[in-house]
């Protein structure tokens, strides 16, 4: 909860800093200069463009990985890793988390932990192999499945 305390103190300069263009990533004390002729705006534009190009390249890359490696664990891991990088880029630059992380981390960190943890715990019961018990819990003990030869508890 310390972030809120932090907020409590940060407010007072945040108020006047950007009087006219009441704008939000005006994090206190970090000035953008006058709105109309922001010298940094070309730099920003370039950053956005770079991210866009990177996203396109990454999309192509995941497509290429799929073509090259086909469907297997390595390609899946690589492709998902690329997806995570893409998502991080969008969040960090496009969603301005590079400026705003210090304001929203208090809520984003728990939700990030919670979402990953939930999927892991659910997988433990629903997808991973836990011996005899698992197939029954997944409703996999029917005769049709049994005929396939390898039971569902193998081959992961």
């Amino acid at each position: 909860m310390s972030d809120h305390q932090h907020g409590d103190h940060a407010h007072s300069h945040g108020i006047q800093a950007h009087g006219d263009h009441s704008h939000s990533h005006g994090d206190a004390g970090h000035s953008h200069g006058a709105p109309a002729h922001d010298p940094s705006h070309d730099a920003k534009f370039k950053a956005y463009l770079a991210v866009f190009v990177a996203l396109c390249v990454f999309t192509a890359a995941s497509f290429a990985i799929n073509l090259a490696l086909g469907h297997n664990l390595t390609s899946a891991a690589l492709i998902l890793a690329v997806a995570v990088v893409k998502a991080a880029l969008v969040a960090y630059i496009f969603m301005h988390l590079n400026h705003d992380w210090r304001l929203v981390y208090g809520i984003m960190t728990p939700v990030a932990i919670l979402s990953v943890m939930t999927v892991i715990i659910l997988s433990i019961d629903g997808a991973l192999v836990w011996g005899e018990n698992a197939p029954a819990a997944r409703g996999l003990n029917d005769p049709i499945e049994a005929k396939v030869g390898e039971g569902p508890s193998k081959g992961h």
């Binding site: 999927v119 629903g126 997808a127 039971g151 081959g155």
Partner: peptide, 13 residues
């Protein structure tokens, strides 16, 4: 989706 996909399938199916 990930759980159903990984949990229900097997190498043979």
């Amino acid at each position: 989706y990930m759980i159903l996909r990984n949990g229900q399938t097997s190498a043979g199916n």
